[in-house]
Nucleic acid binder design. Structure first.
Lengths: 183, 183
DNA sequence: TATAACATGTAACTAGTTACATGATTGG
DNA sequence: CCAATCATGTAACTAGTTACATGTTATA
């Protein structure tokens, strides 16, 4: 699926692999991410398949950049993918839940420590949604008002992230209280 | 990580690969799942590493079953893993969010149709939590009251599933309303 | 009579991660 | 002076999916 994410970003603007990574981290990071190495290998495959083209851009006193541009064939592939509806639920993998599921014989304090640690992580993540993601949306809509529609959808995905974190924190609070009482 | 899930289940009771698949589907399915083929290959690896042993059980008029049992070394590996706290947030991949993110130029009705389709899927999933998962917990605690502690944790993971579905449905309602107004 | 459940496995493939390799510039 | 940023890539590996192969029995 990463290929479609890359095509999606390249449709807005030609970019290098390095820039694509940064853009993803700032925008889709909380629901779709990739390592730098995977981005480079996927771009290579996309070029082989004719969905993008690239040309190197020489730079002074910096390594050359390779700028990727979406092709017509790439735009078509992206459009087809966008029109194809999602018909299955995403299968998430929640490491903490897996551990917790098998933790019935652990000491109360061990479980509580682990839950509290995750609580911290989620609190921090929830904070990030207040600034980082909104900045990204504001910046773009300020310079490109024709992307207003897009910005509404970006905002919706950010909202999802916030709700998810809130839910998670609420569940951790409940679960911590439960373990505290029952164990 | 599947290896630890399998060890976790085998610690309660020796099982075949087929049974492990069924048990997972009914219990950890919504936060950890695996295909039958992956279960078989992972069991093989676990046996090579000495974390489980297996013996074939001949059956009349049915293919032989291969029953896997956790070893001491396997219990140790499981315990070590359980004690190791989760220090990173899970990176989820939400296909719908990825599509939505790039859907700014699609027709209003196309987006709404896709959101409504997913709404249905999540409604159905939310229903499942009311029966299926609770049954599983009730059955086991009725026959094995010494697993009461475990059952509390299983119930917590089920609760997570319910909260997640509720959050998702709420977000879909909001997002459908937003697209309806803004597009 | 067909299909779901029981039962195990391999091969080929796709997706994603970790580690390695290289090297200049800028900011604290 | 050290860490971060800029910048690209390959190799080896782990995890997970899809497709294939085989065959019986119970149930609708």
């Amino acid at each position: 699926m990463l290929k479609y994410a890359l095509l999606g970003f390249l449709k807005y603007e030609s970019k290098t692999g390095y820039e694509l990574k940064q853009t993803m981290d700032k925008s889709t990071g909380h629901f779709w991410h990739a390592k730098q190495s995977q981005i480079y290998t996927t771009l290579k495959k996309l070029e082989e398949d004719g969905l993008v083209t690239s040309h190197p851009e020489p730079q002074e006193s910096r390594p050359d950049r390779r700028v990727y541009t979406i092709t017509e064939s790439g735009e078509k592939a992206l459009q087809e993918w966008l029109l194809q509806p999602v018909t299955q639920l995403d299968t998430t993998k929640q490491l903490l839940l897996l551990k917790l599921f098998f933790s019935g014989k652990l000491a109360k304090e061990t479980i509580l420590t682990q839950l509290r640690l995750l609580h911290n992580l989620h609190e921090r993540q929830a904070e990030l949604y207040k600034t980082e993601s909104t900045d990204f949306i504001k910046e773009i809509t300020a310079s490109q008002p024709e992307l207003k529609q897009d910005a509404h959808l970006w905002e919706a995905t950010r909202r999802f992230g916030r709700l998810h974190e809130k839910m998670y924190i609420r569940w951790l609070d409940e679960t911590i209280a439960m373990v505290d009482e029952q164990f």
